[in-house]
Design a protein around this nucleic acid. Structure first.
Lengths: 160, 160
DNA sequence: TATTGTTATACTCTATAACTATA
DNA sequence: TATAGTTATAGAGTATAACAATA
C-alpha cells in the first residue's frame, strides 16, 4: 500500500503537493509525540497538560480553554495525573470557586525528560537540512501559521 | 496564556525554533482534520480509513498495519462505519480467512466532501505564500520527511 | 443569575486475551 | 502451527447534563 490522499482536486497540483506534505509532516510529528508520551504512559493530551504547566500554574477552566476541551474532561485528566503523582490541586486564592493545578516534582522531572526525548526524536529529521534551510523552513512555517483562521483558540497553540 | 514549549534546551536556538514551528503546524493541521471529521461524526482514524479506502480495497490486517493499530481495533472501527453505511465487508476471494473492506457509495461521497473541505480549510494557510515559496516549503518538508526513522510503518504515511 | 468545578452517564478508541476458521 | 478476524473485557478520552459552591 502506498500513501493515499484525502484531499480533493479543487486545488492546483502545487497546492495539493503542499497540503499533502503538511499532512504527512503533521502525522509524523504527532506520531513521535504519541510514541514518546506512550513510553511514559502519557496520552498526547496529558503530555500537553504537562507542557502547559511546565512554567505556570493554571485553573481548570484555563486548561480547558487552552486545549479546547470541556472542563469535565480536564477534571478527569487531572484526576488521573494527580493519582499518578504528576500534578497537584490547590484552591485558587483569588476565587473560591476555582482550582489551581500545578506540577509536582515528579511532574517537572517527567516534563523535562519528555522534552529532551522529543527534541532528540525529531533531530534526524531537522538534521536533513543545512542550517540555512532550517531557518528558511522555520520562516515559511511561521508564515503559514499566520493564515490559521481556526475558530478554536487551542488550534493556535504549540504542543502545550 | 501564551504558547509554551515542551521541548528542552539540549538543541540550538535555531533547532528549537524549528521544532516549535513543526509542532505548532502539526497541531493546527491535526486540529483542522479533527474539526472537519467531527462535522461528519468521524474520528481522525475513521477519516483516515475513508482516505485509505478511497482508491483501493483493503483487508482488515492491511488497515491495521497501515494505521499502526491492532486488528481488533480496526474490527470495531469497521463495525461502526459499516453500521453507518459508509463501508462494507466482503470475503477475500484469495484467502478464506481474510475480509475485504471497501467504501459504499455514501462512503465515497463523504470522502470526497471531506477532502474538499480539508483543502478549503488549509487554503488560507498556504495562501500566505507565493507560488514559489509554496514550492520551496513543499521541498523542505519532503526533505525532512526523509529523515523520519520511526519504527512504526504508519508513521511514514499521509492522512490515509 | 452566572461561573467554577465535580460527578454521573454514555460512547468511541484502544489494547490484550481468548476464540474460531482457514492456511 | 501460524495467520485472519471477531468478541469480551478493561481503561482512557471525550462530551452532555445535573449538581453544589461561590461570585
Amino acid at each position: 500500500m502506498t500513501a493515499p490522499e484525502l484531499t480533493s482536486s479543487v486545488t492546483t497540483a502545487d497546492d495539493q503537493a503542499l497540503i499533502d506534505a503538511l499532512a504527512r509532516t503533521a502525522f509524523v510529528v504527532m506520531a513521535t509525540l504519541n510514541r514518546i508520551g506512550a513510553e511514559h504512559d502519557l496520552s498526547l493530551t496529558q503530555l500537553r497538560v504537562l507542557a502547559i504547566l511546565r512554567d505556570r500554574r493554571g485553573k481548570i477552566s484555563e486548561l480547558a480553554a487552552f486545549l479546547g476541551l470541556d472542563k469535565s474532561t480536564i477534571s478527569g485528566l487531572v484526576d488521573r495525573a494527580e493519582r499518578r503523582g504528576l500534578l497537584k490541586r490547590a484552591p485558587n486564592p483569588a476565587d473560591g470557586r476555582a482550582v489551581d493545578v500545578f506540577l509536582s516534582a515528579e511532574g517537572i522531572r517527567l516534563a523535562e525528560v519528555g522534552g529532551t526525548q522529543i527534541a532528540r526524536a525529531l533531530a534526524p529529521m531537522i538534521g536533513q537540512l543545512t542550517k540555512r534551510d532550517g531557518r528558511r523552513l522555520t520562516e515559511l512555517l511561521e508564515a503559514i501559521l499566520e493564515g490559521d483562521a481556526n475558530p478554536d483558540p487551542s488550534y493556535a497553540t504549540t504542543i502545550g
